[in-house]
Write a protein that binds this DNA or RNA. Sequence first.
DNA 1: ATCCGGACCTGGTCGC
DNA 2: TGCGACCAGGTCCGGA
Length: 245
Amino acid sequence: MPVDLVQVLTGARVTALRRRSKYILADLNRGPSLLLHLGMSGRVRIEDERLGQFHHDASILPQHDHLVLTTDRGTRITLNDARRFGAVDLVRPGEAHPLLAALGPEPLGDDFTPDRLARALAGRALPVKAALLDQRIVAGLGNIYVCEALHRAGIHPRRAAGRIGRDRLARLHAQIRAVLTEAIAAGGSSLRDHRQASGELGYFQHSFQAYGREGKPCLRPGCTGTIRRIVQSGRSTWYCPVCQR
DNA sequence: ATCCGGACCTGGTCGC
DNA sequence: TGCGACCAGGTCCGGA
């Protein structure tokens, strides 16, 4: 956490909220932007004094509350992160921030094209699963949506990233976009902690075809496979050994 | 340069 | 009830 965080934030007004990859950015009416990452277990709690939601004094921090912002309208915004894998930082105007500098294209943006994906993967020997988790290749995919996109595209997670044919790469590109679009529409995937900004649970977890389904039948129409779990660079991968090649 | 394994943390669940 | 093993939605770093 930057040493001048309190000085920068005190009295500042948030003029815009943005997102880049998995980073939340709050632009201020002066100086730097506030950068947040929720890591694996981070959450933002928003409470309103007028609704009686201040259950404790701001000087007494409940466990794993790391940052408390209080507005002059009686709203309290708290960053809670049990595992502390998240990040809080300031981004100076015009700065190439180290956490943002190397990020690849937004998967739902215009510059994420099948061609660009092909160029990023060309010649690479690492498993396509690992490549899609690399935020320099495409920014914003995590374990769930990589598993789901590979299953939908019928591509084996261990396949070398540079050895996927053009047509199948186009299918992968399309399925990355499709799964993200559907998941966003469903409010995300609530496994444990995730909530929508409204506080409602997301419900895309009910649409998983692969993630977390070890030993269950593959849901691709006509496929008789059983979902298997393997570990790749320390992360679980779920896939169907019959229809993912 | 590329790839992989380990490190960073805490908490929940499960089997004994 | 207690205890250890294992698992978790992410990312960075160092060694091979």
